Amino acid sequence: MTTPALQLTVYGTPGPQGSKTRNAHGAMYESSAKVKPWREAVKSAALDALHHDDAWAALDGAVWVDVQFSLRRPKHHFGTGRNAGRLKESAPHFPTGKPDLDKLIRSTQDALKDAGVLVDDSVVASLSASKVYVLWGDALRTPGAVIKVWRLNDLYKEPPA
């Protein structure tokens, strides 16, 4: 398999985008305070990665985006007292609650567009995404995400294995 056109490791708490709340004056705003810092973290990581590539142009052809979000476990997954820091047997293996995976993708793709990685998030023709807890398998050691972007045309040019 070809190497990705871009691979980023972003550190910070992934923030979902999409849920809106209306204030008393009727103005709409993001429900999650984590959206803006997350988008800035993704944008900053992308700009740092592209800083040394003078030939980079925002991708305007079909791309495949793969994202693995690493989330912090809630405190109630751990014991108390002398068992503090030990994971309860009843703790789930995978995060099935909020934030929603599709809303995490939305904020991440918008940040990639803002950073000049993608011309628009509509060029994403294939998407794979997961959310895992930190320190689970190949997850990050702290909250964040590993983002890989492939040009689909490059993948189809490869000779069969």
Results as ranks from 00 to 15, higher is better:
Thr3Pro: 04
Thr3His: 09
Ala5Phe: 00
Gln7Gly: 01
Leu8Asp: 03
Gly12Met: 00
Gly18Val: 00
Ser19Cys: 03
Lys20Cys: 08
Arg22Met: 12
Arg22Val: 15
Arg22Ile: 09
Ala24Leu: 08
Ala24His: 06
His25Ser: 10
Gly26Val: 04
Tyr29Thr: 06
Glu30Ala: 13
Ser32Trp: 07
Ser32Arg: 01
Ala33Asn: 12
Lys34Leu: 15
Val35Ile: 05
Lys36Glu: 14
Pro37Ser: 06
Trp38Phe: 10
Trp38Leu: 02
Ala41Asn: 03
Lys43Ile: 01
Leu47Thr: 03
Ala49Phe: 09
Ala49Met: 05
Leu50Asn: 02
His51Gln: 15
Asp54Thr: 09
Ala57Asp: 05
Leu59Trp: 02
Ala62Lys: 09
Val65Tyr: 03
Phe69Thr: 07
Ser70Val: 02
Arg73His: 04
Pro74Tyr: 08
His77Thr: 05
His77Tyr: 14
Gly79Glu: 02
Gly79Leu: 04
Gly81Ile: 04
Gly81Ser: 08
Gly81Met: 03
Arg82Gln: 07
Ala84Asp: 01
Ala84Trp: 03
Leu87Ala: 07
Lys88Ala: 08
Ala91Ser: 13
Phe94Lys: 11
Pro95Leu: 05
Thr96Met: 12
Gly97Glu: 06
Pro99Gly: 11
Pro99Asp: 05
Pro99Val: 05
Asp100Asn: 10
Asp100Phe: 13
Lys103Trp: 10
Leu104Lys: 05
Arg106Met: 09
Ser107Val: 07
Asp110Val: 02
Ala111Ile: 02
Leu112Glu: 12
Asp114Ile: 07
Gly116Thr: 12
Val117Gln: 04
Val117Asn: 00
Val117Arg: 06
Val119Arg: 08
Asp120His: 14
Asp120Ile: 08
Asp121Ala: 09
Ser122Cys: 08
Val124Asp: 01
Ser126Gly: 08
Ser128Tyr: 14
Ala129His: 06
Val132Ala: 11
Val132Thr: 12
Val134Asn: 07
Leu140Ser: 09
Pro143Leu: 10
Ile147Tyr: 09
Val149Ile: 10
Asn153Gln: 13
Tyr156Ile: 13
Lys157Val: 11
Glu158Gly: 05
Pro160Ala: 07
